[in-house]
Design a protein around this nucleic acid. Sequence first.
DNA 1: CTCAGTACACTGGTCAGACCAGTAACTCTG
DNA 2: CAGAGTTACTGGTCTGACCAGTGTACTGAG
Lengths: 245, 245
Amino acid sequence: MKFEPVAPVRAYERIVEQIEEAVVSGRLKPGDRLPGERELMTQFGVGRSTVREALRVLQAAELIRSRPGDPRGPEVLAASPGALHRSMHRLARADHVGLAELLQFRMVLDGSSHLLAAELRTAEDLTALDTALEGMAAADGYAEFSRADVAFHDVIAQVSRNPLLVVSGEVVRGVVLELIEDKLSHANDRGTLMRSWLRHHEEVLNAIRAADGKSAARLARQALYDNYAEYVPKDQRTLLTPLLT
Amino acid sequence: MKFEPVAPVRAYERIVEQIEEAVVSGRLKPGDRLPGERELMTQFGVGRSTVREALRVLQAAELIRSRPGDPRGPEVLAASPGALHRSMHRLARADHVGLAELLQFRMVLDGSSHLLAAELRTAEDLTALDTALEGMAAADGYAEFSRADVAFHDVIAQVSRNPLLVVSGEVVRGVVLELIEDKLSHANDRGTLMRSWLRHHEEVLNAIRAADGKSAARLARQALYDNYAEYVPKDQRTLLTPLLT
DNA sequence: CTCAGTACACTGGTCAGACCAGTAACTCTG
DNA sequence: CAGAGTTACTGGTCTGACCAGTGTACTGAG
């Protein structure tokens, strides 16, 4: 006979579970309102501090938002990648997730979204990608260029039609940029860098236009490697090369 | 002249910021202890409820853990993927993510981890994979088989050496199973199903042993398609086929 | 001198009650 | 009917209290 180890369950945790369950099961939709804290404490039969700690946890997870003075009560939020972003960011700043792993992951995600985008793109998608690319070409200064670049990748992720690819791509792109932006801003020939990026993106877009998913994916991964690998410690670059074939 | 919109900053948020900053900057290392709540309220000059709400947020992010009665105070934790797991899980269960998207994402992740595993596997990795496969072959009943299957995939993700692949793979596998486990448990010939799975895994393992990453990745994606595509609405299966080449 | 057993100071979890600044909706006025 | 003022409430914060449970230091037996 075996028993499971148990951890004491705090009152506020039970409240978090109940509300979270109501949100993910769809009984509470985005935009809905929770009862006020004083009402919740009678419904759950606990003190207000307990209710508030539960709401704090839900708020940290970006499931709800509460503003003082609003008599409609805390608002149920739509699922957003903010919490995912924060936790991945924390993990990336800590041990065991370095630039090599992040870049590896980004090559996987970006490659796949490019592949899917090439297969699924519509005519409207192609014009959206064209304007995004024009935005990069017309960018004035590095900061604006970087923003346009991120926007271009976001459009590609959107075209891939998979929200998981969109969100995790968004997050990992952001974290990668944060990790190397200082090194990148110290690069002496950012003009050449930007032109190189632009050429890469044009090639990718051509492959997508030709519905050549495999080429688009390969080009995207290669571009990431060419532009970022130099910031990865030399002995870790072998982690990236298997993804280039 | 432009101004940025501002949001009111709550007292507990300032506390969270300060403690989080101390953790990520390394001034507080895993295993270190925070002062007790009563001591923190004097240091920060706030009431205990404010301190407690801050600690709740940090605890939800798995940066600290506090147990009642411990006179050493709350403990600073090592970075762990638990929070990432939870936020990704919430996102995957949320809106607009159906089985097709999940399966697509899983094909991407599993394919990549198989590719990397084949390139990076050591001799010990191979024996670990052998024992994992034996665990599947020896499994008695479907529940045990499913557990062994998940364990096998976890080992492969570990071998790929990328914690992001490990965590997101873990999550998406869990969510996929949640969505189809009832349909799967109603399948009438689970014996045939299990034998088919086992054969697939043997092929994959052979490719990994041969350091043939491309084959391993292709086989893994094909296996997922063969076994799960029937549960995807027919008009969405075209989302998956581009990943099979 | 060692070690099991005990007492105690203190921890976090929870509750009750209070005050404040600020908001949304209602009411009253012109 | 538009606008100004009122009001009832919201969430944010503080204080003070009680409790069950823990780690440690002390105590006493061997």
